[in-house]
Amino acid sequence: MMQTTKVILLRHGECQGGNILRGQIDVALTEQGEQQMQTALSTLFLDGFSSDVLVSSPLIRCAKVAQQLAEEYGLEFALEDRFKELNFGDWDGQTFDTLYQHYAQELDSYWANPWKIPPPNGESMQAFESRIGAAWQAMLEAHQGQCVLLVTHGGVIRHLMAKALGVSQASGFYTSLKLPYAATVEIDVLHDGDKQYMSLNWGKRT
Results as ranks from 00 to 15, higher is better:
Glu71Asn: 05
Thr152Ala: 06
Met37His: 10
His159Asp: 02
Ala164Gln: 11
Glu106Trp: 05
Lys195Val: 04
Asp192Phe: 02
Met125Glu: 09
Gln3Lys: 13
Asp81Tyr: 05
Tyr174Arg: 08
Met37Phe: 13
Met2Asp: 15
Gln126Cys: 00
Ala183Met: 11
Ser199Asp: 03
Val53Arg: 14
Trp91Asp: 14
Asp194Lys: 00
Gln94Thr: 08
Ile132Pro: 15
Thr5Leu: 04
Gly122Ser: 02
Ala170Trp: 13
Leu41Asn: 11
Ile117Gly: 06
Met1Ala: 11
Ser57Cys: 10
Leu200Cys: 10
Asn19Glu: 07
Ser199Met: 06
Gln169His: 14
Gln16Ser: 13
Cys15Asn: 14
Val185Tyr: 08
Leu29Ile: 12
Val148Trp: 11
Gln101Val: 10
Asp90Val: 02
Val156Glu: 04
His12Asp: 09
Pro114Gln: 05
Gln137Ala: 06
Gln16Cys: 10
Met125Ser: 03
Tyr174Leu: 09
Thr206Glu: 13
Asp26Ala: 00
Thr5Asp: 12
Gln16Ile: 05
Gln169Ser: 02
Ala104Thr: 15
Ala183Tyr: 00
Trp136Leu: 07
Gln144Val: 02
Ile187Pro: 08
Leu107Gln: 05
Glu186Leu: 03
Phe173Thr: 12
Lys64His: 06
Leu160Lys: 10
Ser199Tyr: 12
Asp194Thr: 04
Gly17Glu: 09
Gly203Cys: 07
Lys195Trp: 02
Val151Pro: 13
Ile187Leu: 09
Leu149His: 03
Thr5Phe: 09
Leu165Tyr: 00
His12Cys: 09
Asn87Pro: 02
Val65Ile: 15
Val53Trp: 03
Glu85Phe: 00
Val53Gln: 06
Leu46Gly: 11
Leu79Met: 07
Leu44Met: 13
Cys15Leu: 03
Ala142Ser: 12
Asp26Met: 01
Asn121Gly: 04
Gln94Ala: 04
Val53Leu: 09
Thr184Gln: 13
Trp115Ala: 01
Gly48Ile: 10
Leu177Gly: 14
Ala162Tyr: 01
Cys147Arg: 14
Lys116Tyr: 10
Ile117Asp: 15
Phe88Ala: 01
Ser50Pro: 00
Ala183Ile: 06
Tyr100Glu: 09
Tyr73Arg: 12
Gln126Trp: 10
Gly172Ile: 13
Leu59Glu: 15
Thr4Trp: 11
Lys195Leu: 08
Gly172Asp: 10
Cys15Asp: 11
Glu72Asp: 07
Arg22His: 07
Phe83Trp: 06
Trp115Glu: 06
Gln38Asn: 11
Tyr197Pro: 06
Asp192Leu: 03
Trp202Cys: 06
Gly18Phe: 11
Gly193Ile: 00
Leu99Trp: 00
Pro114Val: 06
Ala104Tyr: 00
Val185Gln: 11
Met37Ile: 13
Gln38Ala: 14
Gly18Thr: 15
Glu76Phe: 01
Gly133Leu: 07
Leu160Tyr: 06
Gln146Ala: 01
Ser130Val: 10
Pro114Asn: 01
Glu14Met: 12
Leu86Val: 08
Phe96Ala: 04
Ser130Ile: 03
Ile20His: 01
Val151Thr: 15
Gln36Asn: 08
Glu129Leu: 02
Pro120Lys: 03
Gln105Met: 07
Ala135Phe: 05
Ser124Ala: 02
Glu106Ile: 04
Gln196Ala: 04
His102Thr: 15
Arg205Trp: 08
Gly145Tyr: 12
Thr30Asp: 11
Tyr181His: 14
Tyr197His: 11
Ala28Pro: 15
Leu150Gly: 03
Leu86Gly: 03
Ser176His: 14
Val55Thr: 15
Met125Arg: 02
Leu177Asp: 11
Val156Pro: 09
